[in-house]
């Protein structure tokens, strides 16, 4: 039942190439997924600004359009306003916990260094060990990186809070029971004449194609994230054959093989959206010219637009908050490792200091 503990051990060059490869891979995945999400957000924004699909469903002018009712239900099911308010309330605590671990770690280094300097000034050249300050430079540099990452996170928290403040009123309205939501919607005289018109069915089919394009992206994102490949054998072989690893060339060509087709499919999805959005905007112009626009209809349309974009913002804020919570929790683990490194080296330095002190006092 022997399992070789050193089975996963690889030469340092391979270890470093693996970590650079993983960084490149993470960047590639983030770029592809980010591009699709941005395109979907753009699409949702354009549709919301055109009050689509609500305008097509709202031909009666008094009940809640189906898409708005669906959006309201979706938000309520995800916990509504309370769930994002709770996540927002938790952020400061997560931030403080991380800052405390970092500050404690750096304080350990500072305290040991000040004792080392005191003894150096007392014993002068007889205190012949390396100054703590020199030894702690790399750890302090690492601490500096953590500090700047935390500062950026604080800015991100602020963006999320502002986004929440901008949209919480409308999100709250979406979360209200149907009767209240319907009462808040200014009613407008019915635009029945448009019910059977050709442009309505053209717009409907364009919108369903857009939904399909967006739906496909979910599958594409899952596929992209599911890609795995073990580069270690490739790096080991290169090291064995050439005595060195051309990490960039090997990684880039491998990543291209793994993600090249996905990049094309993402581009195709973007182009499809662009074309469809163009058609939707053209059809919408025709649709709104047919619709008798009057002040009540415009007021109603404004509220419907705000409700639609409130839903999109809710989805975005929720994903931002999940990302933020994960960021802080992941960072805590990394900082705990950093803290261990600091306490290990300080412990070693203290032991060394006590021995040196004893020698000097005896001699």
């Amino acid at each position: 039942k022997f399992t070789d503990l050193f089975e996963k051990m690889v030469p340092m060059a391979v270890q470093q190439s693996m970590s650079t490869y993983n960084q490149r891979k993470a960047d590639t995945v983030n770029r592809l997924v980010g591009t699709m999400r941005e395109a979907t957000n753009l699409c949702n924004g354009v549709l919301a600004s055109l009050n689509l699909p609500a305008a097509l469903e709202d031909l009666s002018g008094d009940s809640i359009p189906q898409s708005i009712a669906d959006k309201a239900r979706a938000i309520v099911q995800q916990g509504g306003l309370q769930s994002i308010e709770q996540l927002i309330r938790d952020l400061p605590e997560l931030l403080t916990r991380n800052r405390e671990i970092l500050d404690e770690s750096l304080k350990m280094l500072d305290d040991e260094e000040s004792t080392d300097s005191e003894l150096r000034s007392k014993f002068n050249q007889r205190w012949n060990r390396t100054p703590s300050g020199d030894l702690y430079k790399p750890l302090r540099a690492e601490g500096g990186n953590f500090r700047s990452v935390l500062d950026k996170a604080v800015q991100a928290d602020q963006v999320v809070r502002e986004r929440y403040n901008t949209h919480c009123e409308m999100i709250a309205l979406l979360c209200k029971p149907e009767a209240e939501l319907s009462a808040a919607l200014p009613s407008a005289n019915p635009a029945k004449t448009l019910q059977g018109s050709e442009v309505v069915s053209v717009l409907r089919s364009q919108l369903s194609k857009l939904e399909e394009v967006k739906k496909e992206r979910e599958g594409l994102e899952a596929e992209i994230k599911a890609v795995t490949f073990d580069m270690s054998t490739c790096f080991l072989t290169a090291l064995a054959q050439d005595g060195a690893i051309n990490e960039e060339a090997l990684s880039v060509s491998q990543l291209d093989q793994l993600y090249g087709s996905y990049t094309q499919r993402v581009q195709a999805s973007l182009r499809a959206q662009e074309g469809l959005l163009g058609n939707v905007q053209a059809s919408h112009q025709e649709f709104s010219s047919l619709k008798q626009s009057n002040s009540e209809a415009n007021d109603r349309e404004e509220v419907l637009k705000k409700l639609a974009s409130a839903h999109d913002s809710y989805v975005e804020i929720t994903s931002n908050l999940k990302e933020g919570t994960k960021f802080y929790n992941d960072l805590t683990e990394i900082l705990l490792k950093f803290q261990n490194k600091c306490s290990d080296i300080v412990f070693a330095r203290k032991t060394e200091r006590d021995e040196l002190l004893k020698e000097l006092q005896q001699s």
């Binding site: 983030n30 980010g34 990452v149 999320v160 990302e323 992941d330 960072l331």
Partner: peptide, 16 residues
Amino acid sequence: SLYPSLEDLKVDKVMK
């Protein structure tokens, strides 16, 4: 994404 990446902070630098 909104929050900074932790990828490069995860690399455990070997203490000389």
